[in-house]
Design a protein around this nucleic acid. Structure first.
Lengths: 357, 357
DNA sequence: CTGTTAGCGCTTTCAG
DNA sequence: CTGAAAGCGCTAACAG
C-alpha cells in the first residue's frame, strides 16, 4: 500500500505560497504509518518503542520538518520546560555571568530561561511575577530576596521550586544561593583596618544589596565617614562624581570602598585626575572582580564573587527539584574573597578572606 | 441563591496543604455565575461585555487568585505572545542596550522576549532556532544576518515576522535594522587620514561584524598595516595584549582603531604603561560608545551606535507586523557617528560623521 | 450582550 | 510494545 502524504515539503513552491500550517505530530504519525501516540513516544520516550518504529518516525519527522509544539506538550503534561528569571536590569554587568550560567545550565537540561526585568522597584516585581506565572514556568529564580509579602505568598502558593539568589537568608522563600553582603562590608573594613588606615570613605549604589554591604562596612569603621550614595546601577561616570564628593567631604581620605568595580574605576580616575596617587595617597577597593579589574593600572583590589557559580547552582537546584530529587542543602553560601591587588598598596601582612561555602 | 465556592482562598491552611491546582477560567466563571466564554471575554475583550458582568468577573478573579494560562491561550489562538531573540552571548556589553530596549518595548505591547545564546558559532544557531520554534514565537529577532541557508529557509517557511539586526543587507530574510560595518571602518579610516596620520594599526575581535569593520578600515588605509586579531568578544585584557602586539609589529604606530571600547581602553592602558602618551604619541579610536567612554582620561573617541534604537525599532517592526500592519520600510539604517574626544588629539578641522538614517 | 460547540497539539490514563 | 479515548485551559466560530 502506498501512503500518499499531503504534506510532502516541496522546496520550491509557486510564488509566495507558504505552508498553511506547520506539521503536527499527527502528520508525522500518518507519514510513518503509526498511531499518534506511538509517534509521540518514539520521540519523547524511545525506550518503550521498537527500534524499527523509532527509525520510521525519525524519517517521517525529517520528511515533514516537524518541530514539536512545546506549548501543547506543556499544557497537557504540566511541564512547560521553562524557568522564569528575574533580574533588576539586564544591562547591569554584575549579574551577567549569573544569567549566562543560568541560561547555559538550564539549556543543557532542556529548559529555557525566560528573563524579566524588575527594574529596582518592588512594584514592578509583583506585576512581573504575575506575568511570569501566566507562562506556567516549572521553576523561578529571582535576584535578591523577595520582600513583598504579597509576592512571597503568591510564589509559595505556586508550588514550584524557587531560588532566591545573590543574597542569603535563614528562612528563604524556598531555596537560596548567595552570600552575606554584611560580611562583605565588614571584611573589607577589617582589611582596610589591618593595613593601618584610619580615614575611610564609601561610595555605594542605592540598591538594597549594595546598601547592606555599605552598612557592614560602616558597622566596623564607624558611621561618620565620608559617604556618597548614587542611584543604582553605579557606573564609571558615577564613580568619578562620587570620588569628587568624598574628597569634598574629607580631603584627607585614605581608603575608599566602592560598591562595584566600574564604580571603583571611575573613583580611581577621578582621584588621579585630582592629583591623588592610587594607592600612594588613596587606596581603593571595588566589588565584583569584573574581567577588567586585574588589568587596570594600578590593578584593582576587589571582592570576588563567583557569579557564574551562583547561576549554575541555582539552575541545578531547580533542575533537581523538577526531577523530583530532594534537596539536601537548600541554603547555599557561595562565599566571597578579597582579591588583593595594587590599588590598595603593599600586600597586607595577614591574609583576609573568604566566607563559608 | 448562594453560590458556595470550593476555591475560596484560605490564607492559613492546615500544615503544608497547598492548593492542588491553580484556579482556571472555569473556576472564575463559576464564581462569577457566568459562562466560561463570557469570563474569557470579560478579561480579554471587555468591549463586548456589559460593565456589570465585567465587574463580577473581576471580583471572581480577585477571589480565586486566577492567573490566565498563556500556554493554553496561545495554543488555541495561535498567538503565544512571545518573541524569540538570538544574541551571540548575553554577556557582551555591546548588545545590552539592544536587549534591554527589545525587552521593554515588547513588554509594553504584552510580548515576552525569549533570549537564546548562539555563541558565535553557526552550528549552535541552527539548533537554537529549532528549539525556539518549538515555543511557537510570534516573531523572531536575530543578531547579525542569518547566514546558514538551512536556517534561512526554515525561518522563511515559518511565516512569522523576522528582524535581523546590527547589520545591513539589501536582501534581508524579512526585515533588518542596523548599519553598515564597512562604512564604519572606512569612516574611521577617513577620520584618521584627515588628522594627518599615516601609520595605522587595527585591533579587532574575530566575529563577523568586527571583521567587516576592520576590512572597511583596511580598504582605505591599506592592508599591510599592523593588525591584531583576538577571539571575540574583545575585552580590556585582550586590548592590552593587542596593543602590545601592535607595538611589536610597528613601534612607530600613530593611530589605532579598536573594535570595541573595552578593547580600546585596554589598548590605551597598555600604550600608557609602555610610556606612550595618548593621544600625544598614539591616537586611539574605539567602537560602541560605551557608557564609560566619555569619562575616561583621556576621554575616548569612538563610534556611537544607538543600540537601544535598534532594539526599539526591531521590536516595533515585529509588533506592527503581528498587528497586521504593512511595513513601509523593512530595511532600516540607524546609522552611526564618530564621537570625537580626547584620545585622538586636537579636534579635526572638518567634521566627519553619520550615515543614512 | 451571552452561551454552546468544537477544537488547538499534545500527553496521560487505561486497554490490549 | 502499541493503540483508543480523554482532556490539559483556553479561544474562535457560530448561534441565540
Amino acid at each position: 500500500m502506498v501512503t500518499l502524504s499531503l504534506l510532502t515539503v516541496k522546496p520550491a513552491m509557486k510564488s509566495h505560497a507558504r505552508p498553511p500550517r506547520a506539521a503536527t505530530l499527527h502528520d508525522v504519525a500518518r507519514e510513518a504509518g503509526v498511531s499518534l501516540i506511538t509517534a509521540s513516544r518514539a520521540l519523547s520516550n524511545p525506550g518503550v518503542v521498537s527500534d524499527a518504529t523509532i527509525e520510521r518516525v525519525r524519517a517521517a519527522v525529517a520528511r515533514t520538518g516537524y518541530i514539536p509544539n512545546l506549548l501543547a506538550g506543556g499544557l497537557k503534561s504540566k511541564r512547560s520546560m521553562t524557568v522564569a528569571g528575574l533580574v533588576p536590569v539586564i544591562s547591569v554587568p554584575q549579574f551577567l555571568p549569573t544569567v549566562r550560567a543560568l541560561t547555559e545550565t538550564l539549556d543543557a537540561a532542556g529548559y529555557q530561561l525566560i528573563l524579566g526585568q524588575t527594574g529596582y522597584a518592588n512594584s514592578r516585581e509583583e506585576k512581573l511575577i504575575n506575568t511570569m506565572i501566566g507562562r506556567r514556568p516549572d521553576g523561578m529564580v529571582v535576584t535578591g530576596l523577595v520582600n513583598s509579602p504579597t509576592a512571597r505568598e503568591q510564589l509559595k502558593r505556586l508550588g514550584i521550586p524557587i531560588v532566591e539568589m545573590w543574597d542569603l537568608s535563614d528562612r528563604p522563600l524556598d531555596m537560596v544561593v548567595g552570600f552575606s553582603h554584611v560580611k562583605v562590608g565588614s571584611t573589607i573594613a577589617g582589611f582596610f583596618l589591618a593595613k593601618g588606615w584610619r580615614r575611610f570613605g564609601v561610595a555605594t549604589g542605592d540598591d538594597h544589596r549594595a546598601m547592606t554591604r555599605c552598612e557592614g562596612f560602616r558597622a566596623v569603621v564607624g558611621r561618620d565617614i565620608a559617604t556618597a550614595i548614587v542611584p543604582a546601577p553605579s557606573n564609571l561616570e558615577m564613580g568619578r562624581k562620587a570620588m569628587a564628593e568624598l574628597l569634598r567631604q574629607d580631603p584627607k581620605i585614605e581608603a575608599v570602598y566602592c560598591s562595584s568595580d566600574e564604580f571603583a574605576l571611575g573613583a580611581m580616575i577621578e582621584a588621579q585626575t585630582r592629583g591623588r596617587r592610587v594607592p600612594g595617597d588613596i587606596a581603593i577597593c571595588g566589588f565584583g572582580d569584573a574581567d577588567f579589574a586585574a588589568h587596570l593600572v594600578p590593578s584593582l583590589t576587589t571582592v570576588q564573587v563567583d557569579g557564574a557559580a551562583i547561576g549554575r547552582r541555582a539552575a541545578q537546584l531547580i533542575i533537581d527539584r523538577c526531577a523530583g530529587k530532594t534537596i539536601a542543602q537548600p541554603i547555599i553560601d557561595v562565599g566571597f574573597r578579597i582579591v588583593e591587588r595594587e590599588s590598595t598598596g603593599a600586600v597586607a601582612t595577614r591574609p583576609l578572606a573568604a566566607s563559608a561555602s
